[in-house]
């Protein structure tokens, strides 16, 4: 998705001199072309994330649209207070962009797993939190956050092409990627592919699964969640993220308030650091973030209470 992001950013930066791209000394093999084409709209602040966020806020205060880019945890929780105060409290047009959301950097281990970022960022006032589900969504999300005034968090992860036809993308409006009436699988970010593959498996069991890409975690599309609850009665959430405070929690908050009778199962990473070492797919399987496990959970949920 990072290639999709930088491609769109280059297109937009060519048209808009107010776009600035700041990095905390990361982006090897991704950012070079942008840097060469737009040296005046580029800045590598060094390995200094607190500075990165403060500088981004300072530049944004002069009327610019400032992207600050790094790996999952670095421009978010390393400099959380700067993001909270300098960016969100002062309500500036800064876009925090991370790559490698979730378990992407698998064997590099937990320092490089971004698995609490969504919960933490969504707790900040004024910020919009977006985690696109594939390449097309990433492109559309990049354009959307440029046009959206105010702080944004864009979490990029696995590169996938999942749409045959370009979807309609609006911040805060979930995309129903697959229609279905028996069970709903709501995914965020790179889990969209797992959700779609699970739905395909469920078809063999004559189960018609709806798949929703919840690309915007905040503001959350409560209407689409409630509609799914009404129509399918069973909801599964899946996220490459801790179960504490992310997509599952956010969906449960909506359902607890006004969801009526609905069964919900949240899939994600339990409240722990990984004790296993391995690549992304290995760790995803270890934590049950596989189509097989999602399909099994759907079957269990549908028979529960019947």
């Amino acid at each position: 998705m990072r290639n999709a992001f930088i491609k769109i950013l280059e297109e937009e930066a060519a048209k808009n001199k107010d776009i600035y791209f700041l990095t905390g000394d990361l982006g090897y093999s991704v950012i070079e072309n942008y840097q060469a084409k737009f040296p005046k709209q580029f800045l590598n602040v060094g390995v200094a994330e607190q500075d990165l966020a403060g500088i981004a806020a300072g530049i944004a205060s002069t009327g610019k649209i400032v992207f600050m880019y790094s790996l999952g945890n670095f421009p978010t929780i390393r400099c959380l207070e700067q993001v909270r105060n300098d960016v969100c409290y002062n309500n500036l047009n800064v876009k925090v962009v991370t790559v490698g959301g979730g378990l992407h950097y698998g064997a590099l281990a937990s320092t490089h797993h971004a698995t609490e970022d969504l919960a933490i960022m969504r707790a900040l006032p004024n910020i919009t939190v977006v985690a696109p589900g594939d390449r097309a969504e990433a492109e559309l999300a990049t354009r959307a956050i440029i046009r959206h005034k105010g702080p944004c968090y864009l979490r990029l992860s696995t590169e996938n092409e999942l749409y045959k036809k370009r979807p309609k993308f609006k911040i805060g409006e979930a995309i129903t990627v697959r229609k279905g009436s028996d069970v709903t699988i709501i995914s965020i970010g790179g889990m969209l592919k797992v959700a779609l593959d699970a739905a395909e498996m469920l078809k063999n069991n004559k189960i018609n699964a709806r798949v929703i890409s919840m690309h915007t975690l905040k503001p959350l599309d409560a209407r689409t969640i409630l509609k799914a609850a009404r129509e399918t009665k069973c909801i599964i959430t899946i996220e490459e993220h801790t179960l504490m405070g992310g997509l599952g929690s956010a969906v449960a908050e909506v359902l607890a308030k006004n969801g009526g009778r609905v069964r919900i199962q949240m899939l994600g990473i339990p409240d722990m650091f990984s004790k296993k070492i391995g690549d992304r797919d290995f760790l995803r399987a270890h934590f049950g973030l596989t189509p097989q496990n999602v399909a099994a959970a759907a079957r269990r949920l549908m028979t529960k209470g019947k």
């Binding site: 966020a53 403060g54 207070e81 300098d86």
Partner: peptide
């Protein structure tokens, strides 16, 4: 510890 990084950003943009 927040003001100086911000000031750097404003100065750089200027």
């Amino acid at each position: 510890g927040h003001g100086l990084p911000i000031a750097c950003g404003v100065a750089l943009a200027g």
